[in-house]
Design a protein around this nucleic acid. Structure first.
Lengths: 202, 202
DNA sequence: CTCCTGATGTCAGTGACTGTCATCAGTCTA
DNA sequence: TAGACTGATGACAGTCACTGACATCAGGAG
């Protein structure tokens, strides 16, 4: 539909708000306004002043645009695991890493909550979220291995961290009054330890 | 895994081998022969002697046909959790449930391994698998709640069980000589407890 | 000025998935 | 047994996500 291509593409010598960012913003807006399924990629591209084809040059698919910050989060997690004190156990390091991640997310609570609402409303998006979380878990496991923790223990600790994070996040989202995501994570982590200490001796 | 629910639609009026089963069999075969992406739904339907439209009347999408036995597995897990002795802790009950599930899967190792190879080879299928596992975890958590275990502990124990199962299954798949899936699960579970007992007192 | 590069537009095509209506075989009822 | 009913299927058209191939166009390097 011949979108009036307003080409403020280059203003001075630099690039204006880059295409990727415009597409992501347009997508978020439309998903929030009309829902994910009701939004076509053509609409997103039009709002960004670009073509459908260009959208797919920047994002692998219609869902991926919502999982923009995952790489950043992954780097943050692996760095935090690496930076944990040598005395820390695997679970300690994992806990510290996810706490740091929680703190980062908390810097933009509205955005995080909006994104989560969009994702929660659609099954395909929930699937994508799960695989992203799994990827984060794998990255954390790798970072633990780099600390010298052998593989079964590393994977176990990482998966545990992800599981606790999921629960804490869900809890935080469900309580609009609760602003403390790192705190929610800490609590859930403590509860996990309680559950496991609770087990029967047999 | 695939042939489970043969609903002989009417006793004597008798449909031929039901459409759903034929479609599932055709799909498995084609996915194994040519790969998931290289197979079109039209091909599957043709091999089953049906139309593309009919495929989508029986399966929500092209992937779903590979996750045929999940409901059965879910029932098995929840029943096992319910049947655990009253003295069992949450983690004990979860462990017993997944061990039972492992035993069931072991009845058809080749089929399970083939299915896993197909799923592992494709990102979209891995996503679907993750959400199915998450659903199993949710079902187990529900069963724990029915046992009177409060929610954070129930979810935590269920997610832990799923995480351990994933690791044990991956290990079992990677070792063709290893026929003992329940044993692999038991071992991974024991390792988890070791990891957690290992944590620093602080 | 010209070649090269990188981002974009254009266009045609495939294939997953859906809505709708017709058909057809058994079943139930009168 | 005729006729209405039901449930599964076929036939068909349509939408839309996604891809490959090629043209274009601006800026930077030479």
């Amino acid at each position: 539909m011949t979108v009036t291509v307003i080409a403020y593409h280059r203003a001075m010598g630099r690039w204006e708000p880059d295409a990727r960012g415009r597409l992501a913003k347009a997508a978020m807006g439309l998903y929030a306004e009309q829902g994910f399924e009701q939004t076509t990629v053509a609409e997103i591209a039009a709002r960004a002043g670009l073509t459908e084809r260009t959208f797919f040059r920047h994002f692998a698919d219609k869902r991926e645009v919502l999982f923009y910050g995952t790489e950043m989060l992954r780097d943050l997690l692996t760095r935090a695991v690496a930076d944990a004190p040598p005395s820390a156990t695997a679970l300690d390091a994992v806990g510290a890493a996810f706490e740091a991640a929680c703190a980062t997310m908390q810097e933009n609570p509205e955005r995080v909550r909006l994104r989560d609402a969009i994702v929660a409303a659609n099954a395909d998006l929930r699937e994508r979220e799960l695989i992203k979380l799994a990827a984060l878990g794998a990255a954390v496991a790798g970072a633990l291995r780099d600390r010298g923790i052998p593989d079964p223990a590393a994977s176990l600790a990482a998966e545990t961290g992800v599981a606790v994070f999921k629960i804490a996040f869900a809890r935080w989202v469900s309580e609009p009054g609760q602003p403390d995501l790192p705190g929610a994570f800490r609590e859930s982590m403590a509860e996990l330890k309680g559950v496991l200490a609770d087990r029967a001796p047999a």
